Amino acid sequence: MKLLLVVACALIDADGRILIAQRPEGKPMAGLWEFPGGKLEPPESPEQALIRELAEELGITVREPCLAPLTFASHAYAQFHLLMPLYVCRRWEGIVAAREGQAIKWVKPNKLRDYPMPPADEPLIPHLIDLT
């Protein structure tokens, strides 16, 4: 089975809310909510990929020292096995904005379960509730 490495970030604002983004129509699992991030492009490190993805998706600048690894997801989908490190970021430059047609929302950690997420993302929620 193919191993797919993607990286995700829990952006946490000054009020302790976490940013989630809704997968747009036309993408697999459209309508589900997830943490921003994406696939690595060779020869990127996970941190470099996340910095690039956050700039592309949300228009913000993140510095590598502001990314703190928290946990990871390991999930077997039908076509591939997903390995997804989750980083926490509390400091960035710029204003968060949806730049790829996705809906975005700031959510208190204890309300994350109110938003349907891909199976790989759901196990990350308790770690974020414990963190805040």
Score class of each variant (00 low, 15 high):
Ser45Ala: 05
Arg52Pro: 00
Glu47Met: 07
Leu86His: 12
Trp33Cys: 00
Lys111Val: 10
Glu93Pro: 05
Asp121Pro: 02
Leu40Ala: 03
Pro118Tyr: 13
Pro28Thr: 11
Gly38Asp: 12
Arg91Leu: 14
Ile60Gly: 00
Trp92Tyr: 06
Pro24Leu: 00
Pro118Asn: 15
Glu122Ala: 13
His81Lys: 08
Trp106Asp: 14
Leu54Thr: 01
Ile125Glu: 06
Pro43Lys: 08
Glu25Arg: 04
Glu100Thr: 06
Leu32Ala: 03
Ile51Cys: 14
Leu86Val: 08
Cys89Glu: 09
Arg99Val: 04
Leu67Gly: 10
Leu54Asn: 09
Thr71Ser: 10
Glu34Ser: 14
Gly59Ser: 08
Ser74Gly: 07
Arg91Thr: 12
Pro24Trp: 00
Met29Tyr: 11
Ile95Arg: 02
Met29Lys: 10
Gln79Glu: 15
Glu41Leu: 07
Asn110Ala: 15
Arg52Ala: 00
Gln79Thr: 13
Val62Glu: 02
Arg99Pro: 03
Pro42Asn: 09
Arg17Asp: 11
Leu112Val: 03
Pro123Gly: 13
Pro109Tyr: 07
Arg90Tyr: 06
Glu44Trp: 00
Arg63Met: 08
Arg17Cys: 09
Ile20Gly: 02
Met84Ser: 15
Ala103His: 08
Val88Gln: 05
Ala98Pro: 08
Leu112Thr: 03
Glu34Asp: 12
Trp92Gly: 01
Arg90Val: 08
Cys66Ser: 15
Leu50Asp: 05
Pro43Val: 01
Leu54Arg: 04
Leu82Val: 07
Val96Cys: 07
Arg91Phe: 13
Leu19Arg: 06
Asp121Ala: 12
Cys89Asn: 06
Val62Cys: 01
Asn110Phe: 14
Leu40Thr: 00
Ile125Gln: 08
Leu112Gly: 12
Glu100His: 01
Leu50Tyr: 11
Tyr77Arg: 11
Gln102Gly: 02
Pro36Arg: 01
Val107Cys: 07
Cys66Gln: 12
Ala76Pro: 09
Leu50His: 06
Leu86Asn: 10
Thr71His: 05
Leu67Asp: 06
Ser45Arg: 08
Pro116Leu: 04
Glu47Gln: 11
Ala120His: 15
Gln22Cys: 05
Pro109Asn: 09
Tyr87Asp: 08
Leu58Gln: 03
Pro118His: 15
Arg99Met: 08
Gly37Asn: 00
Phe35Asn: 09
Lys111Gly: 09
Asn110Thr: 15
Trp33Ile: 00
Lys39His: 06
Lys105Ala: 11
Tyr87Asn: 07
Leu67His: 09
Lys111Leu: 15
Ala76Leu: 07
Gly94Ala: 04
Pro36Tyr: 06
Ala103Tyr: 04
Pro118Glu: 15
Arg52Asn: 01
Gly37Thr: 01
Ile60Arg: 00
Trp106Val: 10
His75Thr: 11
Pro46Asp: 02
Leu112Lys: 04
Tyr77Asn: 10
Val96Glu: 01
